[in-house]
């Protein structure tokens, strides 16, 4: 069973008078231990699709299933709980909090869960992405690649089923981007997590298990399955 599944999803935005369909009857699914890449030109609806998968946004039409449960009509608070327990996010521009150390940034998503102590897991994750010697550094003391690794560790802190990455290598040079992708490939197996990454960069396809190609909100090609 797919851990996340979009069925016939439509997302329309009202831009003044004009209504645009950012996603036009899209189907999608991903399994644990698999890396799926959504590729397409800028404005093709990749981020919109990732937001549906990440339960940040709800579709205008169609359904979303998480682990077989229909979450389409969940309230914002219910969606927050699902994100909290089962989804991790990596953003193009890292989005680390500048006043927190690397370890604290990784702990952030579970910070308000006083019932669990994630300190050890945070340090362990940082070690595994090669930042064992940067645990107490602040983001401005880290390079772009190091920051993205902190972000990846943060996305894994809650032991998610799905890790979502919107242009994770977009702000990195080619070499750094490749090491980040290698890292993700390794982690998807170690952590048995479904990775859904969005890119407009063909380089990424070397690391992916399957690819969804989007053009103007329509899936034009699914490969690798």
């Amino acid at each position: 069973m797919s851990v996340i599944e979009l069925t016939d999803v439509v997302k329309r935005y009202q831009n003044g008078e004009e209504v645009i369909a950012a996603l036009d009857h899209v189907d999608f699914q991903a399994d644990r231990g698999e890396m799926v890449t959504i590729i397409g030109p800028s404005g093709s609806g990749k981020s919109t699709m990732l937001n549906m998968i990440g339960l940040l946004d709800t579709p205008t039409e169609g359904t979303v299933h998480l682990d077989g449960r229909n979450v389409t009509d969940f309230t914002e608070d219910e969606l927050t709980e699902e994100r909290r327990s089962g989804i991790g996010f990596v953003f193009q521009d890292f989005h680390l909090l500048p006043m927190l150390t690397a370890t604290e940034n990784v702990e952030l998503p579970s910070m308000w869960d006083t019932s669990v102590d994630r300190h050890d897991r945070a340090q362990d994750l940082l070690q595994r992405v090669g930042l064992g010697d940067r645990l107490n550094h602040r983001p401005d003391q880290l390079s772009g690649g190091q920051r993205q690794r902190v972000a990846i560790a943060r996305a894994l802190i809650n032991e998610p089923d799905i890790l979502l990455a919107d242009e994770p290598t977009g702000n990195l040079d080619q070499d750094t981007g490749e090491t980040i992708l290698t890292e993700l490939t390794r982690l998807k197996e170690d952590e048995n997590v479904a990775i859904v990454a969005v890119t407009h960069d063909e380089q990424m396809l070397e690391y992916t298990d399957s690819t969804v190609r989007l053009v103007d909100g329509v899936v034009t090609e699914v490969s690798g399955r």
Binding site: G54, L56, E76, D77, T80, E81, R83, R84, S85, I87, G88, F89, F91, H95, L97, L108, P109, M111, W112, R154, A155, N158
Partner: peptide, 16 residues
């Protein structure tokens, strides 16, 4: 705003 958006995205509740 963006930072708070990140907090909310990674599962921090509105009440928090």
């Amino acid at each position: 705003r963006g930072e708070i958006g990140v907090l909310r995205a990674v599962g921090i509740r509105r009440s928090e």
